[in-house]
Design a protein around this nucleic acid. Sequence first.
RNA 1: GGGCGCUUAGCUCAGUCGGUAGAGCACUGUGUUCACACCGCAGGGGUCACUGGUUCGAGUCCAGUAGCGCCCACCA
Length: 885
Amino acid sequence: MTELPKAYEPHSVEKKWYPIWLSSGYFKPSGEGRKYCITIPPPNVTGSLHIGHALCYSIQDVLIRWKRMQGYDTLCVPGTDHAGIATQNVLEKQLKKEGLTRHDVGREKFVERTWQWVHEYGGVILSQLQRLGCSFDWDRARFTMDEGYIDAVMECFVQWWEAGLIYRGKRVINWCPRCLTAISDIEVKHEDRAGKLYHIRYPFKEGSAMVVVATTRPETMLGDTAVAANPSDDRYRQLFGKTLILPLIGREIPLIPDDYAQSEFGSGAVKITPAHDANDFEVGMRHNLPKVIVIDEHGRMTEEAGRYAGLDRFEARERVVQDLSAQGLIEKIDDYVLPEATCDRCHTVIEPLLSEQWFVRMKELAGPAIDVVRERRVRFVPERYERTYLEWMENIRDWTISRQLWWGHRIPVWTTEDGEYIVARSEKEALEKAAGRPIKQDEDVLDTWFSSGLWPQAVLGWPKQTEDLARYYPTSVLTTARDIIYLWVSRMIMSGLYFMKDIPFDEVYIYATVLDEQGRRHSKSLGTGVDPLDVIELYGTDALRFALLVRAARGQDIRFASIKEKRQPQVEEARNFANKIWNASRFVLMNIGDASGIEPGWVPSDALADRWILAELNSTIEQVTVALEEYRINEVAQTLYHFFWDSFCDWYIELSKSLVASRESTEEVRAARCRIVYVLETSLRLLHPLMPYITEEIWQRLPHEGESIMMAPWPEALPVREDQQAREQMETLIAVITRVRNIRSIWNVPSQSRPKLCIGTDNASTRALISRNEEQIKRLARVAQVTVSDRLRIAERSARDIVSGMEIAVPLEGLIDLEKERERITREITRKENEARGLAARLDNASFMERAPREVVEEARNRHDELIAEIEKLRGTLESLEDGS
RNA sequence: GGGCGCUUAGCUCAGUCGGUAGAGCACUGUGUUCACACCGCAGGGGUCACUGGUUCGAGUCCAGUAGCGCCCACCA
């Protein structure tokens, strides 16, 4: 066997195993038995891996590796999203560098160029997921615009159209003047910004009276076609129907009654601009008002804006205010905090614009999607997101699905010359339906979420009735970020129920948002991001995964620091753990030689350490498995960390060292080696889903069954291995050893020196326990001799203490400072007295005795009595110290 | 305006059934014992944001307050 390096070297190990796993077909489903399926949230095809992805996909890889080891038929389907606006932005930026716009190259060339780019660079993020160790079935990878996927999108559109769920309508929609497209309500972000509230006077046509209206957007007044007041507002009751003159424009507009106007706000009168405000649009519909468009799709004033035509909307605002002011028509201008709507993608201020778009009627689709969540057929983890989802779904509004972009699924609607709509799955089908009439396809493309909303069924083959679809739909769990519950999760549930007549997944696990050290969201543009690949470069994949997973408490955000001076303390902790695993394994490996005679399976033993580690291992398996089932990934990581480091390394290896590392080749030695290999091998299997590479590397060097740890069975907890007695006894043993070490530390006993240890206790079974484990105590406490008796009688000057009802003494002639020792013991007595007093008070409390559960009372009493006995003994010790002994 | 989350050791965070607070890092002392200094051993450190309530008992449950963060929302 080759010498193992002293420290774990992740990079060569990662490079070695991933290709082997891949070519062995381990990532593929077995097709047999119980199934477990995940379709990953497809990252943007333009994307590169960021730290949030690293967490998201690590979690999914943990789940899929765990279920695979449990023997499930596991399938994890990866893929990418064409990400309409995001991708188009990337390509437009590229063109801009060449001094071109998309209009210069034309639609066809632009789309072609985008495809080229996707083919060339689109796979980057998937290869980065491979570096993360993800065991996904890459042969099944899908793209939301691949051939089969297009069929799915077209099928969906056609079916929804035929069911009357899709319609075309003229509405005030959210328009991004930079992206030059409509966007849906949920793609608009609201942010409070400091602004002004302008109070403008509108004169009546007759007389000198004025009505004051307030607005945050004075430039839109140019498009006003009415002023409204609440019908119950006494100030205006007599004035309804009168005509106002719109300043600057001179248009005659009516004063109308409408409930939309609230009497309490300002003067109670509100200007109505039906073409540039969604509410005003509704008012306009009710009163049949004209809709005057004064701002165009670029955010510039139109011809309708008169002398302001051609001005940018913000410039126009200033000019309008100036001009009104010059005419004495500004009553006042207040400071005002207004929620400003911006584009989720480019942060440009949204312009509400009257335009014709395609919509999906949501009420009908939402109904069943509400039911399945309410009935917990789809379960949210953490549960609180269920309410978030339900409240949104219950107030859902129609979905604007058309986008004025070039990159995306072109809307499958053609029109004939006389304006008839032909909706078809393909141009061929459309032509057939047109029966010779010339037709023209709609220019717009579909919202990206329209296609990704079909993800689980589409990647499994839908609309074709494939074997995958039949076998793996519904999928098991969707792991995703909370900010796309509306955008994506809700739509998958709706489309899944509609087309598959079944939920798309049983559970939705909302994982943590990764924040930077300031608590801000990681952002490339802010430069606060951490590149996971840099982290992997520095510490290895397993360390990155573990660092993230150990923090992945259910639904809680994670702060993740950036790399400073080539260091990242959180990942360093994980790297240190990996190294600990490495070195513990190195110890085992160097002692089992060529492993001849090492058999798999636990070799039974009566020794305390063996019984204890087996019980600990068993309960670790139990805890870890339950935690995985409940998505408490941090607990999985923590439990394994402490089992491995504290129980296995600090105690079990140390306790079994003399046998395991023995030069002799007795049966006892062989059995000890079998056992340590067993515990290590089982631990590696438990750790594998979190840290796939290091566990495979070591596992392959250990005696093992099977080709890869990936395919090894997940350990199972066995009730017979619970061993409360071993745990209690071990606790006592650990307490004794720790106390002796503590004494050594306090009195600076040189590490080479081997004092005696005297123990006194009237408990016969404790005495037996100490005697049985004398060799262990001698080794680990570094004492020369252990004497046990029913009472401590000792002549030499010694350090004294009480532990688990035992009196212990370590004779340290010459090292002990009597005064200091007296102080120490006095402090000890005081502490115990305080605790005992507290307990006594409780035991004295009638209500406590009456109402507390019997175990709690019992425990308090035992602890109290124990303390009293200990205090008694310590007092005795103190007396003997006074004597100078 | 509505909803949700957070506030625990110097820092980053755990804390399931209410039973008297834990981890990692950092810190202090110590150690080169043949797996590991990316380590061992020992140790110090907390008014669990605040106020009130329920309870024999509250970090944990309830009500409220403050600060921070997030989501939703058409009041001009």
